[in-house]
């Protein structure tokens, strides 16, 4: 199993930290992981993206132009990465922030109203964990037990009290994800 994915959105949406929690969960599942961020001026005020690769075997290139899965959280990222999903791959997006929905017909498309749900939950900061939950629902590559362990590992101890809230958000994300198109 090798899952090559891109998570892309605005800086501040928790894109990099979602990738980090995903990678740590992968380690808990005894897999090889690579987390490769955009860094430098790209990060400042603009879009942020991170490539995460989870695999049973040695990971080759951290630089990819095709992905099994793309999680897209703003329009700029949709313009850039919709075309980068492998045929038969998965695209997950939040319609809030995406003006033009995806048009590809050869990929699986899922929609998650994460921004809206985060507001309903009264905590916009769990936005990324809602998206993460939806991802885990449609691509169940990691067990929830290991995701919980991944959260423990990646969050500093002083934030461990927030783990139940994050798990709740992941749970919520699993419930609200909707199929748009399945191939």
């Amino acid at each position: 199993m090798t899952e090559e994915m891109i998570i892309a959105g605005f800086g501040g949406q928790g894109v990099l930290s979602m990738g980090k929690i995903l990678a740590y969960s992968g380690i808990m599942e005894d897999k090889e992981v690579t987390w490769f961020p955009s860094y430098g001026p790209e990060m400042r005020g603009g879009t942020a993206n991170v490539t995460v690769i989870v695999s049973d075997t040695r990971i080759s290139s951290p630089i990819l132009q095709e992905f099994d899965t793309a999680i897209i959280l703003n329009q700029q990222s949709m313009d850039k990465f919709e075309k980068a999903v492998k045929p038969g791959g998965t695209l997950l997006y939040d319609p809030n922030g995406v003006i033009n929905p995806p048009t590809r017909t050869d990929i699986n498309i899922y929609k998650v109203e994460a921004t809206k749900t985060a507001v309903e939950m009264g905590n916009p900061k769990v936005f990324n964990m809602i998206v993460f939950g939806s991802y885990l629902k449609v691509r169940p590559i990691l067990s929830l037990d290991n995701v919980e362990k991944g959260l423990e590992k990646s969050l500093p101890e002083r934030y461990h009290k927030l783990i139940p809230l994050n798990l709740e958000a992941i749970q919520k994300g699993q419930e609200i994800v909707k199929d748009v198109q399945l191939v």
Binding site: A23, E32, W35, F36, Y39, I59, I63
Partner: peptide, 10 residues
């Protein structure tokens, strides 16, 4: 190089 410096891995 910058990529290996900035990249996280197990």
């Amino acid at each position: 190089d910058g990529a290996i410096g900035q990249m996280m891995e197990k």
